[in-house]
């Protein structure tokens, strides 16, 4: 733990981050949005004793907005982590120190995650208000928090990977958003289109009831955060999937695996001189 806390990058990043006014503004703006929406809802549907615990709509809305905020914030915070150092021309110096590329990568990830988690933790009390309304069990809340944590980790490591891979922060941010979009919306669309196409191509074999529960499509659905979010909250989306596995568990383990992969890959990409695992160019090519 001492070792962990004395990690120079952690100390430096936290100093840098919390000395700028920007951080305070981000936090304030975030809480304003996150708190404003339930409050607005409260104004429209005043709290009545009769409706307590029956309306899970507010909970759903809050969770969806929360998720959207995570998608928005998490990649942006890490997409500049390495490319920012490169643009400031401090990366080369950092690489000649005794910090290994892997240490640099995970320290950067931890500091960005710490900030996103701070945002998440700061808005958690709002859920207590929301829970008054909804028929949501504490168990669901725990699953939801875990789901958010995994998403933060995944999107964070995705941003980090893009920032190691791509030289410019601007391009890396856009790429990170693009890839995140593929995962969040792309898997859902693919799921939906595949199902529809199969129904149209062979209506007898793939009837409306069967098609959505094909194992391939189930996996696709289990990879889509939106569908999984609805499953956690026991809400049904249009084509309802009867999962043969626990969706949140499947989702969390898949995305954890992907995150680890991204972090390791970033560590590898960051090495200035890479060890060759394969060597197809054994003999140096002669020029001239």
């Amino acid at each position: 733990m001492r070792e962990f806390l004395s990690n120079p990058i952690l100390v430096k990043e936290l100093r840098e981050r919390f000395r700028t006014k920007r951080t305070v503004w981000i936090l304030a703006l975030y809480l304003l949005i996150m708190g404003g929406i339930p409050l607005g809802f409260l104004l429209i549907n005043p709290l009545r004793a009769g409706t307590l615990g029956e309306n899970s709509e507010l909970f759903l809305i809050s969770a969806a907005i929360h998720y959207a905020m995570i998608c928005f914030v998490a990649p942006a915070l890490t997409a500049g982590a390495i490319s920012g150092e490169r643009e400031r021309q401090t990366l080369n110096i950092l690489l000649t120190t005794q910090l290994s590329p892997r240490t640099i990568v995970w320290s950067k990830l931890v500091t960005s995650l710490a900030f996103t988690s701070l945002l998440l933790a700061a808005s958690m009390p709002l859920y207590s208000l929301v829970m008054l309304y909804g028929s949501v069990s504490p168990e669901q809340v725990v699953k939801l928090v875990l789901f958010f944590a995994v998403n933060i980790l995944f999107l964070g490591s995705l941003g980090l990977f893009c920032s190691t891979w791509i030289k410019r922060t601007a391009v890396s941010t856009i790429t990170a958003y693009g890839i995140a979009f593929c995962f969040v919306v792309g898997t859902g669309l693919l799921f939906f289109f595949l199902g529809e196409i199969l129904q149209q191509v062979d209506p007898d074999r793939y009837s409306h009831l069967v098609v959505w529960n094909l194992p391939e499509l189930q996996i696709l659905a289990g990879l889509n955060p939106v569908i999984v979010l609805f499953a956690i909250l026991d809400e049904s989306l249009m084509p309802s999937v009867e999962f043969a596995f626990t969706p949140w568990l499947f989702f969390d383990s898949c995305y954890l695996g992907l995150s680890v992969l991204f972090v390791l890959w970033s560590g590898y990409l960051l090495r200035p001189v890479r060890r060759r695992w394969w060597s197809w160019k054994k003999h140096p090519v002669r020029v001239q």
Binding site: E16, R88, Q89, N92, I93
Partner: peptide
Amino acid sequence: GYMPDFFGVYDNL
């Protein structure tokens, strides 16, 4: 100890 031809410094430190 390596000093590159161009190098940057961190803000807020």
